[in-house]
Design a protein around this nucleic acid. Structure first.
Length: 267
DNA sequence: AGGGAAACCCGAACGC
DNA sequence: TGCGTTCGGGTTTCCC
C-alpha cells in the first residue's frame, strides 16, 4: 500500500528525530527481510554507523549512513516507527535498529513482503527506476515522447517503476480518472494534449496525497486521510464525483482497477 | 516487447 | 460458532 505520498509522509515524520543519531545494534527477526548482505555481515557493519540523512527515492526509504545506505522497501504492509527503547517490540517487527538516543527504529511488516538492502552503492538497487514524477525532469514533453515509444496499456505502464517511479495501484487509478484516460488505452495512442492532462493529473494527485499525509488503508495507519478523498479507488458502485455515472471495477494487468465509464472512454 | 500467471505472505472478509 | 476459501497489494520471475 505505501506509495509515493505515504513514503514521503513517513520520511517527513521520522527524519528530524534520526539525523545525527548512531546505530548501536540491530535485531533481525526474519532473515529474508534482508535482501543483502548476510545477516552476520550486516550486524557487524551497521554497528556505530551514524544516520546522516533520511530521504525518499520512489517508494524506497534511503537511510544515508556514515559509510553505507540502508534502503527499505515497505511493499504492501510494511511500516516504520520509532519507539522508546523500553517499549516492547511488536508482533510482525522484522528489523530493529537500536539508536543512541534511547529509542529504536522498527520495521514492522505483517505480510513479510518488504525488503531491506545494506550497501555502499544505492544505485545497485535503485538504478532501474524511472524518473521522479514530482521533479523538474518530469514534463509533458518527456511523458508524450516516452508514451509514444511504448505500446502498452496505460495502467500497467504507469505502475511500471522503470517507467515512472512511485505510482501504485491507488494513485494510478486516481490519476487516470483525473486525466480522463482509460486504463486500457494504449500508450502510443495518447495525444500530446492528453499527455499534458496526464502529467498534470499525476502531479496534482501525488501532491494532494502528500498534503493529506497519504492514505490510511489496509490497516497500515499513518494518520493520513487521503482515503476520504478518493475519486474512484474503492468506490465501485458509487457515483462519479464528476458526472454521476456509476464507478466500475475491472481487472487490468491482474490489478483491481476503478473507472468511470463515462469520463474515461476507451477511444 | 508485451502480457498473463504464479510466487511471495498474512489477515480480513466472506460463504456455508 | 467455526470452519474453509478468497482476496488484495508491490514486485520479480517465468512463460507464451
Amino acid at each position: 500500500m505505501p506509495e509515493l505520498p505515504e513514503v514521503e509522509t513517513i520520511v517527513r515524520g521520522i527524519k528530524a528525530e534520526l539525523i545525527g543519531k548512531a546505530i548501536l545494534s540491530a535485531d533481525l527477526f526474519w532473515a529474508r527481510t534482508l535482501a543483502t548482505p548476510s545477516s552476520k555481515k550486516f550486524k557487524e557493519q551497521v554497528q556505530g554507523q551514524k544516520i546522516k540523512d533520511v530521504i525518499r527515492r520512489a517508494k524506497y526509504l534511503d537511510f544515508v549512513l556514515s559509510d553505507f545506505h540502508l534502503l527499505i522497501h515497505l511493499r504492501m504492509s510494511g511500516d516504520i516507527m520509532i519507539r522508546q527503547s523500553k517499549t516492547e517490540p511488536e508482533k510482525h517487527d522484522r528489523l530493529l535498529l537500536h539508536l543512541s538516543n534511547r529509542k529504536y527504529l522498527a520495521f514492522n511488516d505483517t505480510r513479510k513482503f518488504g525488503r531491506v538492502w545494506f550497501t555502499k552503492d544505492p544505485e545497485s538497487v535503485l538504478a532501474k527506476l524511472g524518473p521522479e514524477p514530482l521533479e523538474s525532469g518530469f514534463t509533458s514533453k518527456w511523458l508524450f515522447e516516452n508514451l509514444g515509444k511504448r505500446k502498452r496499456q496505460l495502467k500497467p505502464l504507469l505502475l511500471d517503476q522503470a517507467f515512472i517511479a512511485g505510482l501504485g495501484n491507488i494513485y494510478t487509478d486516481e490519476c487516470l480518472h483525473m486525466a480522463k484516460l482509460h486504463p486500457l488505452a494504449v500508450s502510443n495512442d495518447v495525444t500530446q494534449k492528453q499527455s499534458e492532462a496526464l502529467r498534470e493529473a499525476i502531479q496534482s494527485v501525488l501532491k494532494e496525497g502528500i498534503r493529506r499525509n497519504g492514505a490510511s488503508i489496509d490497516r497500515v495507519y499513518r494518520g493520513g486521510d487521503y482515503q476520504n478523498y478518493f475519486r474512484v479507488y474503492d468506490r465501485a458502485g458509487k457515483p462519479c464525483l464528476v458526472c454521476g455515472a456509476e464507478i466500475q471495477k475491472l481487472t487490468v494487468g491482474q490489478r483491481g482497477t476503478h473507472v468511470c465509464p463515462k469520463c474515461q472512454r476507451l477511444r
